[in-house]
Amino acid sequence: MSGQDQTKYANKLQDANVLILGGTSGIGLCVAEASLEFGALVSVASSNPERVHQAVAKLQKAYPSKKDNIRGYQCDLGNQDTMEKNTVSILEKVVQDTGKKLDHIVHLSGTGVDPVPLSALGVKDMTDRNSVNLRFFSPLMFGKHAPKYMNPGPSSSITLTSGVLAIRPLHGTGFAGPMTGNAASSLGMTKGLAVDLAPLRVNLVLPGAVDTPLWDALPGGIGAVLKAKAKDTMLTKIIGKPEDVAESYLCCMRDANMTGTEVHTNGGTLLF
């Protein structure tokens, strides 16, 4: 007796409209790839227009049959003066261009660890830094405006990003306080937004060390030092691959029973 297999799980993202902020490289690009493989419409965004162009070209080359499902947008979310305007603008553009409301937003925009020694820290320096704008203020702006552009109910979600530093400060660096405070702010925000935006779901992914270009962007070769140190504290003894970490974001999108939750993917570094 022949028949067609059920697709109870494989089709959860079929035709879903997904916006990935910070989706042009690293984890974000892998989330875009995975979403396309599950049948989603995917829009990637970055503040760098050249990176947007390159990411779209790469995705279209990898998925030639899904070219019409791939879009790219330049969007600067690091400037407090234009953040809210740009947030509304990209939401409007994606909905207009795709002809349908969004189902999922993945917020991966960030600038790395942005080390600031506590001894040199000023209030204005901290509040004006891109890392704080992108990790704290920008998610709040999307929490404020995104529901108007999203399908309602638990089938839709916003997934934010922090990092293992929110749980485990870097000892002996001199900038553990500012970095940990910045990273940890997302934990409370996720829970609060999950309550405010219900039944729309809000979750948080906290990656550990992941092999992405962010390491190379750190000044003075500190990226290589931190990367080697991180590897030594991981039970897996390997730096995380972005295509593996992307699975945590898929889980947040696909599990309609998950909200206000922190998802850890760190190679066991918290157990070391």
Rank of each mutant, 00 (worst) to 15 (best):
L218K: 11
F136R: 02
L118F: 14
K66P: 05
R254E: 14
W215H: 06
K12S: 11
L121C: 08
D5F: 05
D216K: 15
N133H: 13
D97G: 01
V18L: 00
D68L: 07
T82C: 04
Q80S: 06
A10L: 04
N11L: 08
G153I: 10
S109H: 00
N17P: 03
R201D: 09
P207T: 12
G99H: 03
G181F: 10
V210K: 14
K100Y: 00
S156N: 04
G23Y: 12
Q14I: 08
T269Y: 01
G260M: 10
A176I: 00
E243R: 11
S89C: 05
S46Q: 13
L36D: 11
C30G: 01
R51P: 02
H107I: 09
Y9P: 01
L36M: 13
T87M: 07
R135I: 05
T190P: 07
I239H: 09
A184V: 03
D232Y: 01
A55F: 04
V116H: 10
P147Y: 02
V210C: 15
F137Y: 15
E243Y: 07
M234K: 04
R135Y: 03
I105A: 03
S155D: 13
Y9K: 07
S46H: 14
V225N: 06
N266L: 13
D68P: 00
G181R: 02
K101E: 02
I105T: 05
K191N: 03
V205R: 11
K66Y: 14
Y63H: 15
S2W: 08
G143C: 11
N133D: 00
A146L: 13
N79C: 02
G223S: 10
T265L: 10
T180E: 00
A224W: 01
L59K: 15
T82H: 08
G174R: 09
N130V: 03
G110M: 03
I239Q: 05
H53Y: 09
T111M: 09
T87N: 01
P242E: 12
G174Y: 08
K58D: 06
A228I: 02
Q54E: 14
R254K: 15
K61S: 13
Q80E: 07
R71V: 00
P219N: 11
S2P: 13
A183L: 01
E37P: 06
L165W: 08
S25M: 15
K101V: 07
V56P: 02
A209P: 13
H53I: 07
G240W: 05
L102I: 06
T236R: 08
M258R: 10
V88F: 01
P117C: 06
K241L: 12
N86W: 04
L218M: 15
D216C: 00
R168S: 06
